[in-house]
Structure formats: C-alpha cells, structure tokens
C-alpha cells in the first residue's frame, strides 16, 4: 500500500515536471527571437505533448501526435520558413538559387 502511494507521488511529480516543461517549451516556441528557433521548439513541444498523452492513458493520441505533431508538422513548418526566410531577407530575383539549393 505504501509502495503504491510512493509510486503515485513519483508519477504525479513527473506530471508536474512535464506540465511545467510543456508550458516553458510552448513559451519558447511562441516568443523566441528567431522564427527557426520557434519552429524547432514547437516540434519539441509536439513530442512533449505525445508524452502527456501517454500520461493521460491515451496511447492512440500519443502515436498520432508523435507522427503528426513532431514529424509532419515539423517538415511543413521548416519547409515554409526555408522559403519565407530566404525571400524576406533579399526580396530580389537572385533568391531563386536559395530555393534550388534548399530542395
């Protein structure tokens, strides 16, 4: 009985840590100086969300979040900033090369 209570305390402590880290990572993703950093932190946030779903006894959601939140969204967002960034710094014609180089 005592061991079980101990386990409960430890897992709740883990939940607290995960909750705080989730909020901190989200804050980093939302308010980081550079967009690239924000996107990377957003991918990390997706992975942490997958952990949170495991803790909420929702393995289906954890699987989906890991595949979608971390994998696909990351690829989409990074691809997008690759294009937006190379353009907004030098909005001229020579940035065609930047696109070709990045693909």
């Amino acid at each position: 009985m005592d061991g079980e209570a101990n386990g409960m305390t430890i897992s709740l402590a883990f939940d607290w840590v995960l909750g705080v880290v989730l909020v901190a990572t989200a804050a980093g993703a939302l308010f980081s100086k550079t967009l690239f950093r924000g996107v990377v932190l957003f991918v990390v946030f997706g992975l942490l969300m997958a952990l949170a779903w495991v803790r909420l006894q929702a393995p289906d959601l954890a699987l989906a979040e890991a595949a979608i939140g971390a994998g696909l969204t990351g690829a989409l967002l990074l691809d997008a900033i690759g294009h937006l960034k190379s353009r907004s710094v030098t909005p001229s014609h020579n940035d065609d090369d930047a696109v070709k180089g990045s693909t």
């Binding site: 939940d15 607290w16 909750g19 909020v23 989200a26 939302l30 308010f31 967009l35 996107v39 900033i81």
Partner: peptide
Amino acid sequence: ADRLYAYVGVVLFAMAMYAFLTHTHLL
C-alpha cells in the same frame, strides 16, 4: 494527473492566445 493536464491546457491556451493576438508574422 488528468486535472493537472487540464490546467496546463488552460495556461497554454491563454499564453498562445496572447501570442496569436500580438504577433503579426503569419507563421
């Protein structure tokens, strides 16, 4: 734990709402 994550969700929502309203960069 479930309620803890619900509260985490509230904090995330409010924080992201602030960011959504203040940022102008669409991404």
